[in-house]
């Protein structure tokens, strides 16, 4: 029986904190801010489509491997998207088509990280 879930890490051993490492002062990338903005809008008083607790649950349910592999806002958009599909707000088919179009239109193309992991 698993007692401690992987996101619940208070007290575990880990390496040193890097107060001046990359990301200590940097501005967030535009797409990262867009993820934050989308979450704020779909969870606001007007829409109430997603709660922060659903977002968190979705992130936790990515599982230990993916949780650690993805960056912070990658985890967010993965969870937000799953929730929007579950709730019938967007369809998987239209999402897949749109992602393919956006990647094809992108001047530098897409990276191979869309490949399913073994």
């Amino acid at each position: 029986m698993v007692l401690r879930r992987h996101h619940d890490m208070g007290g575990l051993d880990a390496g040193p904190v890097d107060p001046s490492g990359p990301g200590a002062e940097h501005d967030y990338a535009p797409w990262e801010k867009k993820v934050d903005a989308i979450l704020r809008l779909v969870s606001d008083q007007k829409r109430r489509i997603i709660t922060v607790d659903e977002l968190r649950r979705g992130i936790e349910e990515l599982g230990p491997g993916v949780y650690d592999e993805l960056s912070y806002y990658e985890r967010w958009i993965a969870s937000i998207t799953n929730l929007l599909v579950e709730k019938g707000v967007i369809e998987i088919d239209e999402l897949g088509r749109r992602m393919a179009e956006i990647t094809a239109d992108w001047p530098a193309g897409g990276v191979a990280d869309a490949e399913p992991k073994a």
Binding site: L3, R4, R5, D8, D53, R57, E60
Partner: peptide, 10 residues
């Protein structure tokens, strides 16, 4: 130790 989303740290 419920196997789902809770907010009480381990």
């Amino acid at each position: 130790y419920p196997p789902g989303h809770v907010r009480t740290p381990f």
